[in-house]
């Protein structure tokens, strides 16, 4: 019995390794190609004969006026701001929905869940005109301010988590004369830490990949985020220097990948809990 089982598991491993190899091959090729010269990229080899490390340095400085340091810093500043705001707002709102009872709560919560299915295109144009009238175009405000609402997905995720914390804790604190805000800050918040970490990771990673918002709201190069700068890189040269472009692109996906590896456990469970994206 165990022998047959082992054999079966071996088969699974062989299948999985073959499958993972195919899945991962584009990434391997990407790494190899980022060190190649342009003619060599169209040769059927995985790794270059000569490793061109300068693809990275030249690619980093390929755009006029600003290096990619500027764009990475822009992306970083923007995403740290939106992530912090997301976490604070989402946890406050989630506490309200999970622990307090107030009129029309069920209605608001259903609406919150329904907005998860709302296509962004419907609010896009009026939002754009609204921010336009505030004179917010070409600032980070249209990208940062909406995160103050917490994000329906993040709120849902934390609500689910708070539900698993025993209510007795906050009820006894209530009897001791603790205010609702005190209960939120001193009791529920510390216990929700794993969920807050999940939200931090998701918010940062999705924000890092975000392309559409910056595309329509930012229009001078000095404010560009990494994805916009990459797009400019493609458009700026008539013959795309593929080696350099692939090198910088590879660097641009590193922050999410590194964060993913550091916090894998939370990440995977966060997706399994609600998995509303991707």
């Amino acid at each position: 019995m165990t022998g047959a089982h082992n054999k079966q598991n071996w088969l699974v491993h062989v299948l999985m390794i073959a499958f993972c190899f195919v899945m991962f091959y584009p990434v391997l090729w990407w790494i190899g190609a980022s060190f190649k010269s342009t003619p060599e990229i169209s040769l059927p080899t995985l790794f270059p004969k000569v490793w061109l490390w300068q693809n990275y340095t030249e690619g980093w400085m390929a755009l006029p006026k600003y290096t990619f340091t500027r764009f990475f810093m822009n992306s970083l500043k923007l995403n740290v701001a939106t992530t912090i705001i997301h976490v604070i707002s989402a946890s406050l709102v989630a506490f309200g929905f999970a622990r307090l009872n107030f009129p029309l709560k069920g209605l608001w919560f259903s609406i919150l869940l329904m907005t998860l299915m709302l296509p962004g295109q419907v609010t896009l144009i009026p939002q754009y005109t609204m921010f336009h009238s505030f004179d917010w175009i070409n600032t980070y405000l249209p990208l940062i301010v909406p995160s103050a609402m917490g994000g329906a997905f993040f709120i849902f995720l934390i609500v689910q988590f708070i539900r698993s914390i025993p209510r007795e804790l906050d009820e006894s604190a209530k009897i001791d004369g603790c205010s609702w805000f005190g209960i939120y800050l001193r009791i529920v918040m510390p216990l929700t830490l794993p969920a807050l970490i999940t939200v931090t990771i998701f918010s940062f990673i999705w924000g890092w990949d975000e392309y559409f918002g910056p595309l329509i709201y930012l229009n001078t190069v000095d404010k560009y985020t990494v994805p916009l700068a990459l797009r400019m890189f493609i458009d700026s040269q008539s013959a795309v220097p593929w080696g350099q472009l692939l090198a910088v692109s590879l660097l641009s996906v590193l922050p999410p990948v590194v964060i993913f590896f550091l916090a894998q456990k939370h990440f995977v469970e966060g997706i399994a809990t609600s998995g509303l994206k991707g």
């Binding site: 406050l92 107030f102 609402m149």
Partner: peptide
């Protein structure tokens, strides 16, 4: 308090 907490959203 409920409305204050959910006010941001």
């Amino acid at each position: 308090a409920g409305y204050l907490f959910i006010a941001p959203w």
